[in-house]
Amino acid sequence: MEEKIQKVPAGESQMPKVAPAKTSESPSKPEKRAFILSSSPHIQAEEDVAKIMRAVVYALLPTAVFGIYFFGWRALVMMLVGIAAAVLTEALLNLVQKKPQTISDGSAVVTGLLLVLTLPPSLPYWMIIVGAFVAIFIGKQLFGGLGYNIFNPALLGRAFLQASFPIPMTTWTMPRTIDAITTATPLGSFKFEKTLTPYLNLFMGNVGGCVGETSALAIIIGGLFLLYKKYADWRIPVSYLTTVAIFGSLFWLINPAKYPDPIFHLFSGGLMLGAFFMATDMVTTPVTPKGSWIFGIGAGIILVIIRLFGGLPEGVMYSILLMNAFTPLINRYTRPKFFGEAKHV
């Protein structure tokens, strides 16, 4: 069988290899050169994993800048600590496991930055390091590295911090204050005190919350950039946000005094960041277009249920992690019909 395979056109070389050109027997001057042999296609689009990761970082820049504006230089230091911890963890794990170095693919930078953007602005630095370590080690490398992980690493790191350090993880400071004045997030104040935060503040981000989750404006700018570059599947934010809006409206129409309106749902908490940057993580979301719809709708329903009926004010993280767990299943059941399979003439 081996032999047969060897004989096949263009399948012959496992990897591009250089074969010496045989001397032509033709009378015209023989060309003695080596040409590269490799399988078709011989041209590729200018796509690259590292390039995609860089684009995600760029897309997060507005969010990071707003975070620093609202929560001060400490937010910047947090980001640097998170990124450094994530990259170092991956580098060290590769060293220990004697695997080829992978940090240049840029995915650890994205994980570190995303993690910090979902953390309260007053969280101690060492906890950030713990979170980044868990995100990379358990969230990614244990599964076999980039591409093999089931859960969004940043969210997994955050879930770990939330479970281990519940108090610091829910201590919020008011934006643009010198001393940390403890405050509540808009979702928290609604859940526990039934007060609504003004929409403009929600949109701009001038509210209590995580470093990079407060400004819907900044997140949408970056998110649209990602969608434009096709580095995120538009179906996910569209289906996720629409589901939250519709499902949230249902309850609001039933009892406006008890449940928040859909606009509040959309612009508060981590929903925007989650919808544009977490739920669109390629590795942990479905590869099929239909699967993307299901992912977004499922996450939307779970989110509203947690927000309205769970013990926690916020549910973005769990809604995405849960749907991550379902992703392999969704992929399996949303296989597109083969060309010609459905439609016979």
Binding site: V49, D105, M282, T288, R335, P336, F339
Partner: peptide, 30 residues
């Protein structure tokens, strides 16, 4: 006939499940 400009070996990464190939396949395969 392609020059070395088109034949630079590109790094091979693990599949990041981006779905590009799924969106491209005219035969609707994965």
């Amino acid at each position: 006939c392609l020059s070395d400009k088109y034949t630079q070996a590109k790094p091979i990464y693990p599949c990041i499940q981006c779905g590009n190939c799924v969106s491209a396949c005219p035969m609707n395969l994965l």
